[in-house]
Nucleic acid binder design. Structure first.
Lengths: 213, 213
DNA sequence: TATAAATTTTGTACAGTGTACATTGTGCAG
DNA sequence: CTGCACAATGTACACTGTACAAAATTTATA
């Protein structure tokens, strides 16, 4: 190796993104912001990453991994493994709404994504699903987790509005709507709660595994 | 009313957005692009719409409506009503990937969204679900539709790569991955097909409606 | 009918964004 | 010690959404 020493590497950059997200979880990190946080000029990042999309992909990989895909192949019953990972991934995303767009702005290739897919597939296989249906079920679970997180992030209230206040506002809006929805405003206004998320994936799993039907 | 006549209105602007999406379905329309398409300076739009988010909301409303929420309360069996609307909405979104971000960048308030929620709730109620579970199920269905569309849009190949080619590339990538996924590469590579989408919502519905279990 | 008031549209501008290109500087191989 | 390969920078460009003041236009009133 010739040339000057590299001052950074991809993990350090990903880490900077996470630090930005820790400071302001709702703000979508920007290339220039990351560079500034690292005390470096924006174009320096292009030494380590071909473009913004690649950086986003690296962050996605990190977060998929942070949620601990290991639990998917652990010793717990298959259902708890699936819901466990889903809940953890959801939690990581809701803790960083600003990172959610990264998951939906490019394909999820990469080893961690493959690992998650493999783990979900293993769990569904253990549940008795044929391989093809297992693949479909695994994909459906990811759709549900990412979809929920994206919709929750989309409904985030502005700066400094308490969650409780947000629910109250939402409930009022729903109560003023069509009759059937108005009648369940209490439930519908809290759709981004953990309980309702658990209800959702569990129903999805119920439907995917025929031995439960 | 004094002042000069208005040259536009919100429907005309929404229509311009749809025309831009028709020209290039994958491109996310921009305020300036819409203004140019209407032969008007960018800031003119601010007479009709407070900000970009509001315009996006109007487009979302239009597309939710375009998918025909009327079918949700029609005479067909409840299951066909749900899958019917889900399939149509999905189709409208996949035909305009550039509009998908609009659905996930702000809350879905508005009459059409309420109508869709009401229709889904009615269908699930007819299926025998208690109201609270119906609300949860309705939300889960929207999560699935929007989640699928978003993930499909995220995986869109660049300009001028045939879908068949894309599937082939994806299959090759999957086949090189972990064993279980590699074994079902054929199925997994086509996850954004209509069949697999139908499989997904149908499994979700199965899980949501206890009389089917 | 002339004037004033209201309101749409525009001109101009600013603070951002990602990224391309040429330049400068650093550090190891010869 | 020299030269080369590469990292980091300076500068720049085409974009984005949006704010503000000026201009243009229409209608209601004097």
């Amino acid at each position: 190796m010739k040339g000057p020493k590299r001052s950074l590497d991809v993990p350090k950059i990903v880490n900077a993104v996470l630090e930005l997200l820790a400071e302001d979880p709702a703000a979508v990190p920007t290339l220039r912001g990351v560079a500034a946080h690292l005390g470096v000029r924006p174009n320096t990042l292009y030494t380590y990453v071909p473009d913004r999309a690649a950086l986003e992909g690296a962050v996605v990989e990190h977060l998929l991994d942070l949620a601990g895909p290991g639990v998917l192949t652990g010793g717990a019953p298959w259902r708890e493994r699936i819901t466990g990972y889903a809940l953890r991934l959801r939690a990581e995303l809701l803790a960083r709404p600003g990172a959610v767009p990264f998951f939906l702005s490019g394909p999820m290739t990469g080893p961690s994504a493959a690992l998650v897919g493999e783990g979900l597939l293993a769990a569904f296989t253990e549940a008795g699903l044929p391989a093809a249906d297992g693949a479909r079920a695994a994909y459906a679970v990811m759709v549900h987790v990412l979809g929920s997180a994206a919709m929750a992030a989309a409904d985030l209230p502005g700066p400094e509005v308490s969650p409780a206040e947000a629910v109250r506002t939402r409930r009022a809006a729903l109560a003023a709507g069509p009759p059937r929805i108005a009648a369940v405003a209490d439930v519908a206004a809290a759709w981004n709660s953990v309980e309702q998320f658990e209800w959702g994936i569990n129903r999805l799993i119920d439907g995917c595994v025929p031995s439960l039907r």
